[in-house]
Simulated scan of single mutants.
Amino acid sequence: MVSLAVAPEKLGVSAKTIRRRISNGTVRGYRVGRLIRVDLNELRKCLIVETPTMR
């Protein structure tokens, strides 16, 4: 579990992208007091999009 400040650095996306995904329900945000934390493993699964290859 990491903060919304650390997650974008680890994954190479913006904090706005992560906040958008939390608000639309794609990613789950966990509230700890006043802070929001995200699970990096869950975030990686949701953000990685496989592109089909032509054969």
Rank of each mutant, 00 (worst) to 15 (best):
R34V: 07
S14L: 02
G25V: 04
M54H: 07
M1G: 15
L11K: 02
L11D: 06
L43M: 08
I48E: 11
R31Y: 03
V2P: 04
L11N: 08
G12A: 10
L35N: 15
M1V: 13
R34C: 13
V38D: 03
L47F: 06
L43N: 06
D39H: 12
V6Y: 01
T17N: 04
L35C: 14
E50N: 11
L4H: 08
N41S: 14
G25W: 02
G29N: 12
T26W: 01
S3R: 08
S23T: 03
C46V: 14
E42I: 04
G25K: 02
L4R: 07
I18V: 06
D39M: 07
L47R: 05
P8K: 04
L4Y: 06
M1D: 15
G12F: 02
A15E: 09
V2K: 05
E42S: 14
N24Y: 00
A5I: 10
T53W: 00
V13Y: 00
K16A: 02
V13I: 03
Y30A: 02
R21E: 02
R19L: 01
R37Q: 14
Y30I: 04
R55N: 13
A5Y: 03
N24K: 02
G12P: 09
R44H: 07
R20L: 01
T53L: 09
G12K: 00
V27G: 13
E50A: 11
A7C: 10
E50D: 14
A15M: 05
L47W: 03
G25N: 07
V49I: 10
L35Q: 15
I36C: 15
M54Y: 04
R28Q: 11
G12D: 10
T26Q: 09
I36Q: 12
C46E: 13
R31K: 11
T26M: 05
C46F: 00
I18E: 02
N24F: 00
N41R: 07
A5V: 12
R19G: 08
E9R: 11
I48A: 12
M54Q: 09
I22P: 02
G12S: 09
K10C: 08
K16Q: 04
